[in-house]
Design a protein around this nucleic acid. Structure first.
Lengths: 300, 300
DNA sequence: GCGATGCCATAGCTATTATCTATGGCATCA
DNA sequence: TGATGCCATAGATAATAGCTATGGCATCGC
């Protein structure tokens, strides 16, 4: 069995590749140039291959160096994951946690949930990022996020999800709408009803359309947020579907709109937590989802 | 940024988990018990978590320890891959190379190819393993093999392939067969022709059936190798399809059988090289395939 | 009970090596 | 042709990885 390189050596190689010069790379990793120089030489010795072409204008990786660099980055990333996983396993739901939330959930869920979360997990520091599902998932894949709250179903490679809450859709319209005044509604009644929806890219748009397969979207107008959406409904541009969570949070209060549920089986969307497959904080993501569910049922 | 653990510490942890005792683990990695003890303690310090429960009857990993262990094994595997990749990049096609070959290729291809390979790449030490495709692919996934020569198409997760050679199918029958004496053959002529084939599991069986979609396999007899197959044909049990490579290698010499090609477009199978996705020797696998192709065309 | 045994932790020492400072050689560029 | 920037080497030192010896503490067999 051949000798293994040191993580430190790999770290130095990565810095060297990044900065293209022994001296600057050394500076970047807070050692002196001879130290880094010796470490790279040592690495080349243990690997039995020249990794770097030294020149007067700096250093360039050889072909073998590039191959090693790629794997070195993987090894370092795995090692860093290990550290995070260890900390997470030692004390779950503590420390900085980068959570993405989609815009149709964030303003209605977070005010309810964050205070309880802060009490139950005082060591947890939640950093929030609001964005569309696809971009949140990109963030998960690129390790910029630890977890995300999104609406399901939503398939995406390398992403795993767990549903934590069912969010029912409600029909919203002006009082002079033909369907106004009803207690409940059947999706089939929305046939030929031009629905006002969010812009393309918002998963709520697709989920709403899926919920009432008979309804059609107005193609001439679309809203950029749920708040503007209800205002557009109010001004007579059409009816829409709203998540109950948003209505409960007071989205349509004092708007003078009619809001009614559907007959069972109730149409809706699932709210769930998502994480990168193999993430060091996958377990924590699940626990966070559970904590959110509890805090929702606790004060529902 | 938190301090990273050492590969050595991870190695110690893996040994400890495997042996369940500090003393025996230490022995296994050729250090003394206090050394390993100190290293594990140091690891626990840098991770900020207790990984091991010390008891009088040995050591057991904590929950966090299990989580770290799993990732530690990944990191170590990646690091070992890095070493191999470096050596491969430094001097491709050298050193030990574990090559799997399916039984319907091995006896006919290897005698042609291995001698040239030995001359062109004298430092390459090829270790051969003959088995069915699926088991070879298992070997690739479990890192017991570096590459495999198989017949394509053959989809399998985590496996990548590259075709290197087209192997035409030939029709073989006894001289008293109705189709005997023809120059060429159309697949449609095999309708209702009961074909004698290899046992289930051999991809050649499936590829042969795919080549002539009209033909049907005899379900009462099946051969375990191409050599027994031709003997069974000879004894009148039925006709069959043989890869040209095997015929060229003398499979039916002095057997008194009729062998004829198909009309274009010629039916056949692709012979290709396969490797584990992300393998440290993926590049070498490709090069090996290229070398084999060259050695085939060189003396075809 | 009570040594005997096996296991892990600690202490103190040593050898190794990682890192630093200082310096030299060698290209490139003004 | 000096000046500059870059990497390699040398020598000294601090950090640490490892070893030997030993102690404490359970468990087990008698």
């Amino acid at each position: 069995m051949s000798q293994l390189p040191t993580l430190r050596q790999l770290q130095f190689l990565i810095a060297l590749a990044e900065h293209g010069s022994f001296s600057r790379a050394a500076e970047a990793v807070f050692v002196t140039q001879p130290t880094l120089s010796a470490a790279i030489k040592e690495l080349e010795m243990t690997l039995g291959t020249v990794l770097v072409e030294r020149g007067a204008r700096g250093a360039v990786l050889t072909h073998a160096g590039e191959a090693v660099l790629e794997r070195a980055q993987r090894v370092m990333a795995e090692a860093e994951d290990l550290v995070i996983a260890a900390q997470a396993a030692g004390e779950p739901l503590s420390g900085p946690f980068r959570l993405g939330v989609i815009p149709t959930i964030a303003p209605f869920l977070l005010p309810k949930v964050l205070p309880t979360l802060r009490i139950k997990h005082p060591k947890l520091e939640v950093f929030l990022r609001e964005d569309l599902t696809e971009r949140l998932f990109d963030g998960l894949r690129e390790r910029r996020l630890d977890a995300a709250l999104v609406a399901l179903p939503y398939e995406s490679p390398l992403i795993e999800t767990k549903s934590i809450w069912s969010d029912e859709f409600l029909f919203a319209c002006t009082p002079d709408h033909p369907l106004a005044g009803r207690k409940t509604l059947d999706p089939s009644m929305l046939e030929d009803e031009p629905l006002l929806l969010l812009e393309d890219g918002h998963c709520l748009r697709d989920h709403a359309l899926a919920a009432c397969s008979t309804g059609t979207a107005r193609s001439d107008f679309a809203a950029t947020s749920l708040h503007t959406l209800v205002h557009m409904v109010k001004s007579g541009l059409g009816a829409t579907l709203l998540p109950r969570m948003a209505v409960d949070a007071g989205l349509v209060d004092q708007m003078g709109l009619e809001v009614m549920p559907f007959d069972p089986p109730v149409a809706g969307r699932e709210i769930g937590v998502a994480w990168r497959k193999g993430s060091a904080r996958a377990e924590e993501a699940l626990q966070l989802g559970e904590a959110i569910r509890e805090s929702l049922t606790g004060q529902a």
